[in-house]
Amino acid sequence: MKILAITACPSGVAHTYMAANALKKAAQELGHEIKVETQGAFGIENELKANEIKEAAVIIFAVDTKVTKEERFAGKIIHRVTVSEPITNAKKVISDAISKVV
């Protein structure tokens, strides 16, 4: 399944990237395709493109701050968690997100 995710934390140096890595690793282990956009201290990195958003089944927001350019995801299924949830249990976050699709 194609999953997209956005990670963001207040200081934008640690949590943001740890959550992104945790999600990538868990998605790989569970056999899903994932792309993670990070909204850290450098601003948006690895930006999700319009066609990717269109094709994605579900979008995970693992954020403690506002999602920048949230309007891109209008009408999509969104699973919203805090940024620390994927760090402690990324697989659960992904399976919860997927359970929203079906």
Partner: peptide
């Protein structure tokens, strides 16, 4: 409460560099 926290943290995140 969760939403309020996100708003506060967004403010804090933009403030930190200053």
């Amino acid at each position: 409460f969760e939403k309020a926290r996100v708003h506060l943290m967004t403010g804090v995140s933009y403030m930190i560099p200053f």
